[in-house]
Amino acid sequence: MGKNAHQDIPWTELPIFLALAREKTLSAAARRLAIDRTTVARRIQALEATMGRALFDRTDGNFQLTLLGRKAFSAVERANQELSFFGQALGGERHPLGKVRLSIPPHLAFSLAEPLTRFQSENPQILLELKATDQLASLMRHDTDVALRLSLEPPKGMTRYKLGAVPLRLFERAGGQSDLTRYISYPGADSIDKTIKSILPNAEITLSIDGYVPMREAIAQGAGVGMLPSDFGEEDPRLTPVSDKLYDNDMFLWLICLPEQRRLTRIQTLMSFLRAEYASK
């Protein structure tokens, strides 16, 4: 062993650490490793004792990585990635570069279905796990690895890339038969803002819907006028725009990940793919 090698690294505990970080419960980690949950708990305690600090926060039986735990997880994954080159990955993974969990808004699942299928075909060494949800999966709690998010500004402290502007427009059912006094809002709004009111002066909120996908469907069924990303509304022949772009300050589509994970090959591969995909649009 070289003079600079760290002789105290608990190599035998690292597969257990990886399993618990990924599975988040003792039982699930034990099943993954084919050992009993008591052994998982005991060896994680021993690893934390060696480190001198907690790697996990325990809440109602769930194990969430601490800040140190997230940094350690990224470091161990990088080591695992290098070892996989020699066929000696710690977890004996079927996919040598591991799994990437991608969280996206549901309305993007339509336009990303073909590109993500192509990504998986081109990168069989990576297992892509897609979560299409309007609920924001937390990077900090390690609920996801990479996220696409619509917002004016991305969460602070993240590695982020701006993929493009997302202008918003008002839409009605095609044919002009919608009741323009009926406005479909998003939950939490108790009034119509002045920009929309200037276009629909007689409108009142008659329905609130969470998410662009159910919003589009409700508009198509004639429930009222609603606001959607321009591209998402325009691609549906059942809808007709009622307005031009609504706001001067567009929302943006952001691609984000934790800074400590950005150097992982699996993360870099997916993020580079998505950046190139959106750059070509």
Rank of each mutant, 00 (worst) to 15 (best):
Q221Y: 04
G92S: 10
S121V: 03
L152Y: 14
L127I: 01
F110S: 14
G175N: 09
I205H: 05
Y186L: 06
L207E: 15
G157T: 07
Y212K: 01
S103P: 02
G188V: 02
S103F: 07
L136D: 13
F110E: 15
N123R: 12
T133S: 13
T195S: 02
T144H: 07
T144G: 06
T181F: 04
P96V: 10
L108W: 13
L148M: 10
F110M: 14
R173V: 07
P154Y: 04
K194H: 13
I209M: 05
L170V: 02
V100Q: 10
S198T: 03
S178K: 03
F119Y: 12
P167Q: 08
A137L: 07
V146Q: 11
S121I: 05
I199K: 02
N123T: 13
L148F: 11
D210V: 04
D210W: 07
R216A: 15
K162E: 15
Y186E: 14
Q221V: 00
R182W: 01
F110R: 14
R149G: 03
L180N: 09
M158I: 07
P214K: 08
Q125F: 01
R101N: 11
L168M: 12
R160P: 04
H107C: 08
G98Q: 12
L148K: 09
R182F: 03
A218M: 07
G211F: 12
Q177S: 09
Q125E: 11
P187T: 10
L163Q: 05
G98F: 06
Q135D: 11
Y186S: 14
S111Q: 13
S103A: 15
A113M: 08
I209A: 05
G175P: 01
L200P: 01
G176Q: 09
L200A: 05
L102V: 06
L207K: 14
Q135I: 07
I209K: 08
G188T: 03
A174F: 04
I219P: 00
E93S: 12
A203P: 02
L168Y: 09
L152H: 15
S138A: 09
Q135F: 08
D179L: 00
R169K: 12
G211C: 05
Q120L: 01
D179T: 04
A174G: 03
D179C: 04
Q221S: 08
Q135W: 07
R141W: 08
S208L: 02
Q125L: 03
G224W: 00
D134L: 06
I104T: 12
P201K: 10
E204A: 11
Y186R: 10
R101G: 11
A223D: 08
E153Y: 13
